[in-house]
């Protein structure tokens, strides 16, 4: 797999460009939408929270923004990855090319959006006077890579399943919506007493990842290398199994479009 990806690098670049253009080309605000969506959500939730009383923790604004942006990243990887093959059915039916490139190109767009939003986080952190260390930034990158590995691993499965079972798109949308409220994005697990909820919260892997991103920015949590390494290793296993499944199944999908 590795070899073919490298020799088809230009294809990957062109597909990423095409995806990106398609998404924002015909809109007036274009690429600004990448920022508007999370920032508008942020403003609404921040207003509600701070108006309801005082902010639950120090630097709550940054806590909230990181939660929204990183959940958005995970959610986009899941949605884009799932639709990666279906969206490209017209070219898959016309020419044979390494299909993992279709997958990577879709996930790459989620990564680009994360990069753009990271600038926003950095600006807010800077204005709030939060201390950002090089190690913190490196840790943030490590957590993002871990999330990406999981996103890719899951997409290896869902991109193929979705072709045979279209309902999966709606199922995943619903799951992502529900998960949004089961993840400490706008509430703070220890401060907001949620009867019985906190034990589930502690096991929620998305919540753990988001808290580790926060740790990288010196907000709320502290860095736990061992946790992230376990997640990374597990993610790589899922990726390995996923790519095996994907490469076996992807040849058979053309007739199901």
């Amino acid at each position: 797999m590795q070899k073919s990806v490298i020799s088809k690098r230009d294809l990957l670049i062109n597909l990423v460009k095409a995806n990106f253009k398609m998404r924002y080309q015909n809109s007036v605000l274009g690429i600004l939408w990448v920022l508007i969506k999370p920032y508008a959500t942020f403003l609404v939730l921040y207003y509600i929270r701070v108006n309801a009383g005082k902010a639950p923790i120090e630097n709550y604004g940054l806590y909230l923004l990181i939660g929204i942006v990183f959940y958005g990243f995970i959610s986009e990887m899941i949605t884009f990855g799932q639709m990666a093959l279906l969206d490209k059915s017209n070219i898959i039916l016309k020419v044979s090319f390494p299909k993992e490139i279709a997958l990577l190109s879709s996930l790459a767009n989620a990564v680009i959006n994360l990069l753009i939003n990271t600038i926003l986080i950095l600006i807010l952190a800077f204005t709030a006077g939060v201390q950002i260390t090089p190690i913190g930034i490196l840790y943030f990158i490590l957590v993002s890579i871990t999330a990406f590995v999981w996103g890719l691993g899951i997409s290896f499965f869902t991109s193929v399943f979705t072709i045979r079972f279209r309902d999966l798109k709606n199922i995943m949308e619903l799951a992502l919506f529900l998960f949004y409220w089961a993840t400490p994005i706008f509430f703070v697990a220890e401060k907001d007493s949620l009867a019985g909820g906190s034990s589930f919260m502690a096991l929620n892997p998305v919540g753990i990842l988001i808290n580790q991103v926060r740790a990288g920015f010196n907000i709320y949590s502290s860095i736990e290398y061992s946790t992230i390494l376990i997640y990374l290793v597990l993610g790589l296993i899922v990726c390995y199994l996923g790519s095996k499944f994907f490469n076996r199944q992807v040849k058979k999908i053309a007739e199901y479009f």
């Binding site: 230009d10 670049i13 062109n14 070219i91 016309k94 090319f97």
Partner: peptide, 12 residues
């Protein structure tokens, strides 16, 4: 460019 790379050409 998109079609060309799909057919296996490089951008260059």
């Amino acid at each position: 460019y998109l079609n060309g790379t799909l057919l296996g050409m490089t951008n260059a």
